[in-house]
């Protein structure tokens, strides 16, 4: 069964390339490469999370940037108040406390949004997730304490024991490690007993219900899981850029995430990582040439959507089992 091993080998290849990137940058002396690679890996975490609900749960969320934004803002807000000495026990800068807190905030938001959005399907679902994301976006814009339109600077990254994630190389490998763990979890998730039911609901809800499945709980649990993964990406972004702004939660960001998923290959988990790399990489390349990079990127997306319906690498990843 070489077919069954191909996705695994491909995934290992992707991680091998990502792991070797810093060496390539060091050899070629391309200094801005590290930032680019870090952004790719962080976005990859978010789009794997998005693929979990779109590709496996058929829940097309057009508001996933809200979790990216909230994850980032929790980091920034805790740092802000810690800096002012307003928090009990002097606040904290420890990643072990701040990051889980941010992810829990995303879970809570995901629970509310998911519960309401899952009362509908299809276009209505898309609309409700978009509406919630817009509410979060305008909330962030209007709260002047936290920078409003301008966003907030973060003085320094959160701290971990033993390693200094203030150093770009270490931070990159931490992000890569978290992507690997997250991807492994998602892979296990979709192949589990839970995942079997989730995927059955995508293919034939009527069949699943007549076998004894109550759809809401399965879909909601998946939505919340995805929100937490996207929140983690937001946390890492805030630490990477040491800056958060309402743009993190803008609907255009949600659209970019979705484009990365479709570009790489819906319902493959690994595919969206390639999608993120292709999207972020192209954006970087094209914007060196023109600031209107979307003029080139747009047609490219259209071509991929039309002629490679399983995305760039979907067919390599057993995409014949996806849509």
């Amino acid at each position: 069964m070489t077919d069954a091993r191909r996705p695994i080998l491909f995934t290992l290849g992707v991680f091998a390339v990502l792991a070797l990137l810093p060496a390539v940058f060091a050899l070629t002396g391309w200094t801005s490469g590290m930032g680019l690679a870090t952004r790719i890996v962080i976005y990859a975490i978010a789009v794997v999370a998005l693929d979990l609900i779109i590709g496996y749960g058929a829940m097309v969320s057009f508001g996933h940037a809200m979790f990216f934004g909230v994850g980032g803002y929790v980091v920034a807000i805790v740092a802000h108040h810690t800096g002012l000495g307003e928090l009990p026990f002097g606040g904290t800068n420890a990643a072990f406390i701040v990051w889980p807190l941010a992810i829990l905030a995303c879970a809570a938001l995901g629970l509310v949004v998911g519960w309401l959005a899952l009362k509908t399907t299809g276009v209505q679902f898309i609309m409700i997730t978009l509406a919630f994301a817009q509410m979060v976006f305008f909330l962030l814009i209007s709260v002047q304490v936290y920078g409003g339109d301008d966003g907030m600077m973060i003085d320094r990254r959160n701290t971990l024991p033993f390693v200094d994630i203030g150093r770009p190389l270490i931070f990159y490998y931490l992000c890569l490690l978290l992507l690997a763990v997250w991807l492994g979890f998602c892979r296990m998730f979709v192949n589990s007993r839970f995942g079997l039911v989730l995927q059955a609901l995508r293919q034939s809800e009527r069949r699943a219900v007549n076998l004894g499945i109550a759809p809401l709980s399965f879909r909601l649990a998946t939505f919340v899981t995805s929100a937490m993964g996207t929140g983690l990406a937001g946390v890492l972004w805030a630490n990477y850029a040491r800056f958060v702004s309402p743009d993190m939660a803008a609907w255009t960001k949600s659209g970019e995430f979705m484009a990365m998923v479709v570009l790489g290959g819906l319902g493959t988990l690994t595919g969206p990582i390639v999608g993120a790399a292709a999207f972020v990489g192209l954006e970087e390349l094209l914007s060196m040439w023109t600031e209107h990079w979307m003029i080139v990127m747009g047609p490219l997306l259209v071509i991929v959507a039309l002629f490679r319906r399983r995305g760039l690498v979907g067919s390599l990843l057993g995409g014949d089992r996806a849509h």
Binding site: M188, S192, G195, V197, A208, G212, I213, S217
Partner: peptide
Amino acid sequence: AKGGGSFDV
């Protein structure tokens, strides 16, 4: 699905 499905991931 007989027992309503599992949350075992």
